[in-house]
C-alpha cells in the first residue's frame, strides 16, 4: 500500500472511530475527572492531528518547487 493510500485509510478510520456507540451510556471518569466520552473524543482530536501530519508528509497536493504562474507572468 502506498503511504498516501494509508493516510486516506487512516482518515476513514478516524471517521468510523468517531461514532463510538460503545461509550454511549458509560459514565466513568478517567483519572477521576475526565468523563470517558470526553477523554475518548479528545483522543480523536490528537489522532486527527497525527493523521494530518502524515498527510502533509505523504499526500501534499502542491509541489512548492514549481509555484503556479501568476497573472502577470502568464501575460
Amino acid at each position: 500500500m502506498k503511504p498516501a493510500h494509508a493516510v486516506w485509510a487512516l482518515v476513514g478510520l478516524l471517521i468510523v472511530a468517531h461514532q463510538d456507540v460503545w461509550f454511549w451510556d458509560d459514565a466513568r471518569l478517567v483519572f477521576g475527572f475526565l468523563p470517558i466520552t470526553l477523554a475518548y473524543h479528545a483522543g480523536i482530536s490528537l489522532a486527527a492531528a497525527g493523521t494530518w501530519y502524515l498527510a502533509t508528509l505523504f499526500c501534499w497536493p502542491i509541489d512548492e518547487a514549481t509555484p503556479p504562474a501568476t497573472k502577470e507572468e502568464r501575460a
Partner: peptide, 9 residues
C-alpha cells in the same frame, strides 16, 4: 464529540 472532535477531522 458532536462538534469539536468531528471539526478536528
Amino acid at each position: 464529540g458532536m462538534l469539536a472532535s468531528s471539526s478536528g477531522i
